[in-house]
Structure formats: structure tokens, C-alpha cells
Design a protein around this nucleic acid. Structure first.
Lengths: 264, 264
DNA sequence: CCATCTTTGTGCACGCGTTCACAAAGGCAT
DNA sequence: ATGCCTTTGTGAACGCGTGCACAAAGATGG
């Protein structure tokens, strides 16, 4: 899962809770699938299962949008698809720029999900002059110098950052200065943006680390029953114990092959 | 941000709240950066700023791990790096397999962040026979037939799914059957897994849709001040007002251009 | 050794999000 | 029309997460 949401401390935008907004795309996807199978109506129970949530939660979520169901019957699939699409702002066209056309940026550009619902890749931008002009996913890569004019000319308000961590903040600043007010950040950095700009981040290594935590916990539960009491965490094996001071030397140690790029 | 977290209704694993676990990688990254600049100690205030959170929250988060700070001074950077790494299970090696070596899968394989901290790409797996043997990011792509043996032989417990949506559940089932207990899913589908298996999902289009929602709201606030009162959302252009029952026929109405491809 | 200053660790209160459980509402059969 | 059955919409309770604000703890200087 992308983690995310910076700024806007869970603002209940126009009555719709942030948590609900985050689930609407999920419902929409499930509904679209039903629509393709020409299913006319669906109950909260069925839809909830398809979306992987609790039916009570789903009904409450929908209640924030209005009363779109029919008691005793369920929800009209097509109607709901439209309502949610409209609520999410997907009935209009959103031009998007992707900055940083490396492996990830190229993958994003090729990703079908982009174009599918209201999003249109307006331009691919990269700082490498050698990339300029080369076609990626059918679009010619533009040089960073053109960033501002591209944003302005295409009226872009959503930007995707797929650059190395080091360049992210700078790119972000330029995007914002040029008029972008929503940013999806794939670079492993905390971006600071002015009030009114939304940032969401997708961070692979954070997700993996969270999984590792749970994985470790599972493994620990099998072997050791109740490892350490309370203040537990502190002590450790004798010799190899890296004291705060000693630790520093690492970084090129155990995993000396770590590409210096992209911290983690 | 990757969204996510399936199953495990916010279990407070060993006393550490899920929300805190999700922030530990953030702190770790900030601390690693400080460590590289040889900064010996850091205050909760400074570190919080670097990680983009509130200092009180940070202190509370750390309090779940133990009392690792020194009042009047702050936290020892190296020591904290080690403690958090250990808590997240990053002091051990986690072999990972990536299934689905398309654009995204290849990008992930090349992503440095993988190897950097305890994670090692054990194998790249793809269903396309033509891909088999071809080197990607220095590793030969293996065919799906080998999936089970690869998992078993390398003792893999974390799997990354980067296949098309249609194949995701099937791949997931096989991974789980072979012994994987943590899955990072990039495919736009809800995966169902047995108890005890953790799934986190990273979904580009969901993130974009959430941004679009806020973007639309911003745009709406500028022009219209207080659009509609409360029960608001419902009404719309006269004739086209679709009642729940009438709705069915719609879907091709006002916005008849909605592409039926790739749900969202 | 004492006073002062800094920064941690946490008790407490508040608000969001989730879930339960049920009354209201509509369809359908008789 | 009437009654039964299904499913929605929501009031209310609960629990997690956040942030305030302060007491405790340690460092530092005289």
C-alpha cells in the first residue's frame, strides 16, 4: 500500500472523511468490474466482499455521498459508478506530468492504469539531455528546462516525481512554483511543500520494512514464546554488539554492493 | 503513498502500534542521513522536522521501543539507527522474489532501495517463456514453473507481485502455498489470503484518484463558495437527474466517453 | 554541591474511524 | 391492500491515534 497523505491533518473535506475518500477508488474498481459483467445491482454485502472491506463500513461510506441505494434491493451499479466517479473528479480530464524517466518513470509512463480514468500523461520530463526527444510509451521525453512551460501550457495540476531522492525536493519546488498543487512522490524523501499543496508518497522500501517487521514478529512467536519482558528491547549479544559509536563504520560493510543511489 | 495494510485490524504487535511501525522506516531514513553526515546526537525536535512529523508524536513513538534518549541532550544517532533497524528486523537478511517482470517488475528489480537494507532479490519470476533466462538487473529471469522450488530453496518469506491484475490472485495463492507469508502487491486487485499472511498494496491509480478528489475540491472552492448545503451531492442538471431506478440505463449518458478498459 | 536550563517521557483529553445493531423503507407475493 | 422479507441508512459505543502540556531527569556552569 502506498502510504501517504502529507499535510491536511485528516481534513474532512466537504463532509467526506479522508478514510472514506481513500476507499472510494476501491469501490469504483469493484463496481466497474461488475458493470463489465453487466450486473445491474449489487448489495452492500456483495460489493463489500469484492472490495475487501466490511459491509457496514461500505454503507457508511456511501452514506456520506448521499442515499443512492434502494432498501431491500441494493445499489444500482451504473448509477453508483457514475456518482463515485463524479465525486472523485474523474469525469474530467487530468493532465499529469511524470518527472524522472528512469526505470520507474518509464514503467509508470507505460502503465495502463494512468490513462484509464480521466488521467492523461501530458508529458515526460527528464534532466538527462541524452534522453531528450527519445520516445517512451509513445511520448518524446522533454528536458527539464521546459518543465515550467509544459506545466503552464497544459494546465497541469498533478505531478508525479520519479527522480532520485536527491533531486526530488528541487523538482517539487519547481513543479509547485509552476502551478502544480498535487504531487505523487515516488522518491524516498520527505517533501516539504507550501500550504494548499497535497503530497502523497509511494515508498517501496517503507512497505518492505513494515512487512519485515511483521515477518520478524511471526518468526519470533514461533520459536521464542515470550522473549523479553518489558524494558526488554535493550540488551544484546556480547562481542558483536555495535555500540552507538562503533556502528558508524558500517554502510559499506555487510552489504558493500549497495548502489550509492537511493538510500532506502 | 502506498495505501494498504490488509488483514490484521491494527493489531498492536507486541505493544507497538501499527501507526508507529509505519513511521519507524521514516525515522530510520532520517537518522541514516544524519549518520552519514557524522552527526552524533539529535533532538526529538530536529529529527521530527527531518522526518516530517510532530515532535511529540516522535517521542511517543520512541517510547514504545524503550527509553533511548538522554534528557537535556537528545538521542544518540548511531544507537537509534541500530535499535530501529533491529526492531524492524533489518539486521537480518530477507530474501525476496519479484513475480511479473514487465516494465514495473524490471523497474523494481533495478531499484537500489531493495538491496540497501536487509532485502535481497532472490529471484525474478515471469510467466512468459520468452523471458526465461534473460538477464534483468543482473539476474536471469526464471519461469513461473520454478516458483515453488525457488521459494523453498531460498527460504523466501516475502513476495512482490508485479503482474497484471488478472494473474495476481493466482500468483498470490501459489506464493502462499509455497510458504510466503508477506506480500507486497502492485497489481490493482484485492488479494484474498489466509489468516496469518500480511498483504500490503501499492496502487498508483488509487493514489491518483485521491489526489484528483482533493484537486477537484480545491478548484471548486475557488469558483463556487458554498456550492450545495448538506444533502447536497444529489441533484444535477434537470432532465438528466437519474433516480436510482432510472439510473440503470445511464452510464453512457452525460459522460458517455468513459473508457471501459482497465477499470481503474 | 547547588541552581538552572534543556529535552525527554508520558498522563490526559479529544477527535476520527470502525463496528454493532436496529429501525425505517421499499419490494413482492398473496 | 396487507404482511413478510430483504437490505439500506444511521445512532451510539468503543478504541486507536494525535497533540498538549508538564513533571522528571540529566547536563552544565558556577
Amino acid at each position: 500500500m502506498a502510504t501517504g497523505r502529507t499535510h491536511r491533518p485528516a481534513t474532512r473535506s466537504r463532509g467526506i472523511p479522508e478514510a472514506t475518500v481513500a476507499r472510494l477508488p476501491l469501490y469504483l474498481r469493484a463496481l466497474t468490474a461488475l458493470s463489465e459483467r453487466s450486473v445491474p445491482t449489487v448489495s452492500s454485502e456483495e460489493l463489500a466482499t469484492a472490495a475487501g472491506v466490511n459491509s457496514a463500513k461500505l454503507r457508511k461510506d456511501f452514506s456520506y455521498l448521499g442515499s443512492y441505494g434502494t432498501r431491500g434491493v441494493g445499489y444500482d451499479v451504473e448509477y453508483l459508478v457514475y456518482q463515485i466517479s463524479r465525486e472523485l473528479g474523474l469525469t474530467q480530464d487530468w493532465p499529469v506530468v511524470i518527472v524522472g524517466i528512469g526505470n520507474l518513470g518509464a514503467a509508470l509512463a507505460n502503465y495502463g492504469g494512468f490513462a484509464s480514468r480521466g488521467f492523461r500523461v501530458a508529458a515526460l520530463i527528464d534532466a538527462d539531455p541524452a534522453m531528450a526527444g527519445k520516445p517512451v510509451a509513445g511520448l518524446p521525453v522533454r528536458h527539464t528546462d521546459e518543465l515550467e512551460s509544459i506545466i503552464t501550457d497544459n494546465d497541469v495540476s498533478i505531478g508525479v516525481i520519479a527522480t532520485p531522492a536527491g533531486a526530488a525536493q528541487q523538482v517539487c519546488d519547481r513543479l509547485v512554483a509552476a502551478g502544480v498543487t498535487s504531487i505523487l512522490n515516488f522518491a524516498p524523501t520527505v517533501l516539504s511543500v507550501p500550504e494548499g499543496v497535497d503530497v502523497r508518497k509511494v515508498d517501496l522500501s517503507i512497505e518492505l520494512q513494515i512487512l519485515a517487521f511483521h515477518e520478524q514478529r511471526k518468526a519470533g512467536e514461533e520459536t521464542t514464546s515470550a522473549q523479553e519482558p518489558a524494558a526488554a528491547v535493550q540488551p544484546r549479544s556480547g562481542a558483536a554488539v555495535r555500540t552507538p559509536a562503533a556502528g558508524r563504520a558500517a554502510g559499506k560493510g555487510p552489504d558493500g554492493d549497495v548502489p550509492a543511489v537511493m538510500p532506502a
